[in-house]
Design a binder for these strands. Structure first.
Lengths: 313, 313
DNA sequence: TGCATTCATGTAGGCAACCTACATGCTCGG
DNA sequence: CCGAGCATGTAGGTTGCCTACATGAATGCA
């Protein structure tokens, strides 16, 4: 653990980032998958880092590896260094005028559907390119995606920031009402708006437990003191809409991203808090990049336009 | 100036440092000399940096180069990044227990003579190695040496920090009286201490103009209103002492670093400020390194011991 | 208690990056 | 007008990083 061979002038950001990734993902293989490299490459990098620094950075730990205290220290320092690098780069980009580079976005399908077409339009003729991933997951899992993507478009019904997003930069893009979706010939369709006691005794099509939308039927149950019967639990909004149209029950859909099909109608739900916050999440060091900030700013603008559009109607 | 080819994940510290060096040294050839590389290597690095960033960083400027605004921006950012890297490294070193690496010291010969033997002794059995350079130069030139060395041991008669050392970390290591050196059989040798009017009319052996010690005869001239006659101007203290012993005149020597030869004696000079501050200078980013701080701390300790030793006698 | 899965790590070879040596061309000063 | 000093280009060697593949260890399930 001695015999350090002519250490390079600097601690290498490459190594720091690797350590941070290991700290976050717990296993070399996971880091390798996330960074599109082989575990072998990472293992070799670790060894050269250890050789350069003269310290052990990882230890075997059952099936995987564990950071040594020294490794952990560097992993923590990584944020500081990488943020500083990104800050300088951002200043350069700002001076050069045009932010550049690839911004990776992970998004809910429903929110992405209304936000991203506009975004791509706005990014046309800029040096920013976008890579996309989409997923529909439990509220608490959105934060984990901020490891992979520069910006995660998530939603929260519990407040302004999704659970688990502590330590992330979170920006509210819009507040979107969640409406009740009914067959057009449903008895309740005659009412302009619906109260909890109107809907509690009908057959529901819900979402899996832990999914944000589930907060609404839960609130209805608490308010009325009666159980909501969820006949089905689905993730995909369009599938749900189709089933509602087929008379399988009533459901909930976000207002902006739903253009009701002929057989169904949307009705506002009043008397419980029935809205979601659409929130962009970023890890602080990723948010230092000007391109990332720029995209986030655009998303804020698009969200504001969206709310205006619907407020006007 | 477009067509950026898959920029690496990070701004490279290597490039930032290069730009900072160019900002400081004004010419590629000078940087090449200072970093022991060829100008060609630097030129190529610049081109790759420009390719990666998609910005021109330098422009031809008469015989040399000049940083573009973008280059200047990055050169300024370099301090931030490199300091941050060094800070993390310092934390690692502190945790590992032992600071490591090479610390380059540039020093005055006289101060080095009394400080460095002790320093090397203290660094025995540590992982710190020292490289040395020595020079005897004008007070205002010491700061420039902080570009090359991690620690510059300099001195100032004008105050606590040498002129030109703004922006550098400066640490006072010791205050050393400057005594008058006389032939042992000189008439003034009978006095325990000497006043300006005692010495002004004798033949002096001085230092080149601008050198710190010259401040003392200048003060004597101002105080007495009479000119000091400098028969010779020398840099080397031992040479001066030998010539004083040979009766060529009287001179000034720092007390700690002079062990008077048989034929000469030292006498304190009172009535003017006759002392120098021995000061360690470091560029802030270099000072972030734990090894550099450790060596500086040792120097402070050695300086304190030195003053105690002389106060006791 | 096997047996497949999931890790980490080692080796060999390709590919790109960096540097030196050398040559060329430009700019200034005598 | 010529030489000194500087930047830049090219060719070639060396090093470093990564993939592909093989090995070995630990885990969890039948």
């Amino acid at each position: 653990m001695n015999a350090h061979a002519s250490a390079p002038r600097f601690l290498e950001p490459r190594h720091l980032e690797l350590l941070r990734e290991i700290a976050a993902r717990r296993t070399l293989a996971a880091v390798a998958r996330a960074t599109h490299r082989t575990p072998s490459a990472l293992s070799q990098q670790l060894r050269t880092a250890e050789r350069e620094l003269g310290v052990k950075l990882v230890e075997p730990d059952s099936r995987g590896v564990r950071l040594t205290p020294a490794g952990q220290l560097l992993a923590e320092g990584a944020d500081e260094v990488i943020s500083s690098l990104a800050r300088v780069q951002a200043r350069l980009d700002a001076a050069t005028g045009a932010p550049r580079g690839q911004v990776s976005i992970g998004t809910l399908p429903s929110a992405g559907q209304v936000l991203l077409p506009q975004l791509l339009h706005r990014l046309r003729d800029t040096a920013i390119t976008v890579s996309l991933d989409d997923f529909d997951i439990a509220e608490a899992d959105f934060a984990a995606r901020a490891l992979d993507a520069d910006i995660v478009i998530s939603h929260s019904l519990s407040g302004e920031v999704p659970r688990g997003a502590e330590g992330l930069i979170s920006t509210v893009l819009a507040r979107e009402p969640i409406d009740v979706v009914l067959p057009a010939d449903h008895r309740l369709a005659a009412q302009a708006q619906l109260r909890p006691q109107d809907v509690v005794d009908h057959e529901w099509i819900g979402v899996p437990e832990g999914y944000p939308f589930d907060a609404i039927p839960v609130a209805v149950e608490q308010l009325t003191g009666r159980p909501v019967h969820r006949a089905l639990r689905l993730r995909d909004n369009h599938l749900l809409e189709a089933l509602v149209g087929a008379g399988a029950g009533i459901g909930l859909l976000p207002r902006f991203s739903t253009r009701p099909a002929p057989g169904v109608v949307l009705r506002p739900l009043v008397g419980v808090s029935a809205a979601r916050a659409i929130v962009a999440l970023s890890r602080p060091d990723r948010y230092e990049r000007l391109a990332v900030r720029t995209v986030t700013d655009h998303l804020v603008g698009i969200g504001a336009e969206l709310m205006e559009t619907y407020a006007a109607t």
